[in-house]
Amino acid sequence: METAGAPPHGTRPRNRRELIIAAAADLFHRNGYRQVSVSDVAGAVNVRPSALYRHFPGKARLLAVVVLAELQPFRDVVADRPLDGMLPDLVRAALDHPRLGVLWQREARALPADEHAMIRDELDALNGHLASALLAARPALDPSDAELLAWTGWAVLQIVGHHSVELPKGEYASLLEKLVRTVFAATPSPDLPQPEAVQGFAPQARRERLLAAAVPLFAAHGYNGISMEDIGAAAGISGPSVYHHFRSKQELLYTALVRSDEWLRHDMMRALAAASNAEDALRRLSDSYVDFAVDHITFIDILLSEARHLSDDQRPRATQSQQEYLAEWLHLLREIRPEMPVMQARARVHAALAVINDFAFNRQLRQRPNAMPTIKHLAELILLGT
């Protein structure tokens, strides 16, 4: 299927490379990198695959260039500018270029290690510019706290590509800027003692061993990047024995998602049962999700990125479970702030969850002594701040 504005067959426009990048960005974002072939991208711009290879040596390099192209508008905005002047343009870039978060967090895992590291370095540099601007505006901040706040503000902006929020663009921009400013003005929590690392024990039952092995493999390589044989080998189970417990890789993924949903709901019910009022309930629910995401980040990863590989029968239950969980957050927030428009409340919930997820994915941030209490505090500010 060709994209709108694709050049006629047989022509050679001067901006062919840019057209290829734009078409690939759209296809990778909508369908997923592994589901898109070089022929698909070539067809979208009315060229043969051989013409595409004149510009890119392979699909992986094309994905790397796509992610860098989506990142470029943000790099242009943050370069050597004061924070107050930067923020409106940064929000505008997020609204005008919403695909970066999905392409980086969901699709870039398919990149070779060197390409992935190169893009990670670019993101670190962008965050460094944000942290420097924040330090210039708040010189009393500790540099490590400035970096944590900068990453959190960046995570707020990335909700645009992950979630559909039906707000007028101007109203959405105003809300995003307000949320980012709230984060950047926050006071980080004091350091807390770090808990001792626990090695833990592997389950003995073969079915549980397969589940325990599958989840990190799905998270690291994606559903299409591993086989049942890979999972069996990681679990120490060889040959057809794997299929005695799960009929297919899809069934294994579904079971893992159902298991994580049950754990998450158990944590939610425990948080709600201990609450004294709606505000206390929302705070406890948010705190419990931080703990869950940090302890079970691979479950969060596959929930966000791999559920699309479920069957047509399985997918509705997974979607319904996510919607019901989000509805609990939204209900509590509306109980506390009944004057808040529904779509603004929904955007705040998505922003809080995005901040928590992004924090849980970032091992370097998690290791800081004050990181956990600070993220819990920031999530509360995003939800309930004025």
Rank of each mutant, 00 (worst) to 15 (best):
D280S: 01
V65A: 15
L130E: 00
L52Y: 05
A51W: 06
Q250C: 08
F74R: 14
L100A: 05
Q72A: 07
F361I: 07
A235I: 10
A256Y: 10
L111W: 04
K249M: 05
A146R: 08
A273V: 00
I382E: 03
A140T: 10
W151S: 00
L353F: 03
V294H: 12
A131Y: 04
S276P: 08
M118E: 15
L87E: 03
R206T: 13
L333D: 12
P190S: 06
I20N: 12
R75N: 11
L192W: 09
D313T: 10
L211D: 13
Q105P: 00
A220P: 12
D142W: 01
P112N: 03
A293Y: 13
L148R: 02
L134N: 07
Q323P: 00
H221C: 06
L130M: 03
D267T: 01
L126E: 09
F246K: 12
D295W: 07
L285M: 12
D89L: 12
H163V: 06
I297P: 03
D80K: 15
I231M: 03
V198K: 06
R138T: 04
A60N: 14
Q323E: 06
A354V: 00
L383V: 07
N370M: 09
V45F: 15
L167N: 02
Y243T: 13
A150F: 00
A185V: 01
E324D: 13
T187L: 05
D267Y: 04
F201C: 07
D96Q: 14
V355I: 04
E279W: 02
P73Q: 00
A202W: 12
T374Y: 08
V102Y: 05
Y223E: 10
G5A: 02
R106G: 14
H350G: 03
H221S: 11
Q72N: 02
Q367K: 12
V67A: 08
A110D: 15
L192M: 09
S164P: 07
